[in-house]
């Protein structure tokens, strides 16, 4: 039990750092990009947030040592894991792109915007999976089932991923409305929805785990 509480504290600080990095990433491009605004130069914002979240996530997971224990420590093994992870990340970007297109994003009109959103979603979801579970799709699928979580980090992963996806889904709702707002343009509302969903996930996860710490029994570990 104490173990869990310590872990939750670690999670709270980690999430604070990630959330803070998103804010910083929103503000930073002011100094580098001319006429920067979240709506106007949306892609700049999107790349900045993706990049910062990616870097911060990797660093935190590495520092906290949550990543799955590797059996071998040879360099070639590590390199192959890294390559595999990169391949998984790219594949996930392509997968998200495909899903977005199937949902009705135009295939030809704004491919760059769609793909950027796919990258953002991958940073919010797949990258964290990669960091926490390694390039092991079986494990990912296992984590996203009711009894599949094996640590509080797995539960946290469930919550943030669900938050991101639901946020993106809800973000698509305002697109057809005739309000003529700048943020209704594709993919702004979706990427904002994803970010808000992710932030909500970050916020909710420690609290939810804390309240349910008695019910959460992790089989292994």
């Amino acid at each position: 039990m104490r173990d869990v509480e310590i872990n939750i504290k670690g999670m709270v600080s980690a999430h604070t750092i990630i959330a803070f990095s998103i804010f910083i990433a929103t503000l930073m491009p002011h100094f580098f990009v001319e006429n920067y605004s979240v709506y106007g130069t949306h892609l700049a914002w999107l790349y900045s947030v993706s990049g910062s979240v990616a870097v911060v996530n990797i660093t935190i997971f590495w520092l906290l040592g949550i990543s799955p224990p590797t059996k071998k420590h040879t360099l070639s093994y590590k390199v192959s894991r890294l390559v595999k992870s990169c391949l998984h990340f790219v594949a996930s970007c392509l997968f998200f792109h495909l899903v977005l297109v199937l949902y009705g994003a135009t295939l030809l009109e704004a491919p760059l915007e769609t793909f950027s959103l796919a990258v953002l979603l991958s940073c919010f979801t797949t990258l964290r999976c990669l960091c926490a579970l390694g390039p092991n799709v079986q494990a990912w699928i296992r984590v996203f089932s009711r009894d599949g979580a094996m640590s509080i980090w797995d539960t946290c992963l469930q919550i943030t991923t669900a938050g991101t996806l639901i946020g993106t889904w809800l973000g698509a709702f305002p697109i057809p409305l005739d309000w003529d707002r700048p943020w209704q343009a594709w993919p702004i509302s979706c990427s904002l929805g994803a970010t808000f969903g992710f932030l909500m996930g970050l916020l909710v996860a420690p609290g939810w785990i804390y309240w349910h710490r008695k019910q959460l029994t992790y089989k292994c570990k």
């Binding site: 079986q138 699928i141 996203f144 089932s145 009711r146 009894d147 599949g148």
Partner: peptide, 14 residues
Amino acid sequence: LYVPLRLNWDGLLL
């Protein structure tokens, strides 16, 4: 898309 996700959540897909 919800159908397979839900089945996986219930641990039935694998």
